[in-house]
Design a protein around this nucleic acid. Structure first.
Length: 250
DNA sequence: ACCGGGATTTAACTTACATCA
DNA sequence: GTTGATGTAAGTTAAATCCCG
């Protein structure tokens, strides 16, 4: 499985060993205290210059053409197989680091959204309390009221909103994407999208609707997979009823 | 300053798989 | 379709190095 014209690993080690040891190039960058530890066996690590050249080449191309591999090997005084193996290992390390970076980006995005979701949930709760208080006031005044071109019954809820409650969902909710929730969601709504990096607009809309739906799917890692699930949209309450409530509040 | 041992890094290897002539 | 050569990813090994008590 060696490249054409290559060598046995043991002979290469001996050759590199002799080359490094005689020139001291393999550990020229080490401090004197570190050099103490070095024995005649310590001939494995490539020199700083070799690593620098390899890194530079890796930045341009992560996979070497055979011709460039031979040329680089010649320039660095390494065997072509050593260069090939270095690139293999480098690709593996790079991939691993990239995975770590991706993970931390996704995690911070998730943490952001989770905290925004929590604050929206609190805001929604306080609005519900306000609504109850207002309902109480309206009851004291007695009789039916008209709002938004529609009659409100004795407990102050429109039919549309009552229907919306039948599925056990909270009665006060609104469509952020359609209304922009200005004046209600206030400060945070524009930052929801702005803060979320790395998702396209479709995913963005899904997330907004998850926040809007008020369930726990966003805060449960086991439900992350549902970002791509169109079923999310099925959870959305009837948005037409929100228009009347929005008019009512504004 | 030195030492021992666990943790980490890295060059080299093995294996499985894909591609191509 | 089969075969052999070649290259790569993924996982492993072993030696060097780091780090901490």
């Amino acid at each position: 499985m060696f490249d054409a014209g290559e060598f046995s690993p043991s002979s290469s080690a001996a050759a590199i060993s002799a080359e490094c040891f005689s020139s001291n190039s393999c550990f020229s960058s080490l401090s004197s205290s570190k050099k103490k530890k070095i024995t005649s066996k310590n001939t494995r690590r490539f020199s700083d210059e070799q690593i620098k050249s390899l890194e530079t080449m890796f930045e341009t191309e992560t996979k070497l053409e055979p011709r460039k591999k031979l040329q680089l090997a010649r320039e660095l005084g390494l065997q072509p197989r050593q260069v090939a193996i270095w690139f293999q290992n480098k690709r593996a390390r790079y991939k691993s680091k990239q995975l770590e970076r991706d993970y931390s980006t996704l995690k911070s995005n998730y943490d952001n959204l989770a905290s925004q979701y929590e604050s929206l949930k609190k805001e929604k709760q306080s609005l519900l309390i306000q609504l109850q208080k207002l309902n109480g006031l309206m009851q004291k005044e007695g009789g039916s009221k008209y709002c938004c071109g529609q009659e409100i019954d004795s407990i102050g809820l429109s039919e549309a909103t009552k229907n919306n409650e039948m599925d056990g969902r909270p009665s006060l909710s609104f469509d952020l994407s359609e209304h922009g929730a200005k004046g209600v969601i206030s400060d945070d709504d524009s930052s929801i999208k702005a803060d979320y990096l790395g998702l396209d607009e479709d995913a963005d809309r899904h997330l907004l609707k998850m926040v809007e739906a008020g369930d726990s799917s966003l805060t449960s890692p086991e439900n992350w997979g549902s970002l791509d699930d169109d079923g999310l949209l099925d959870q959305q309450p009837n948005s037409t009823s929100y228009d009347q409530w929005w008019d009512f509040w504004s």
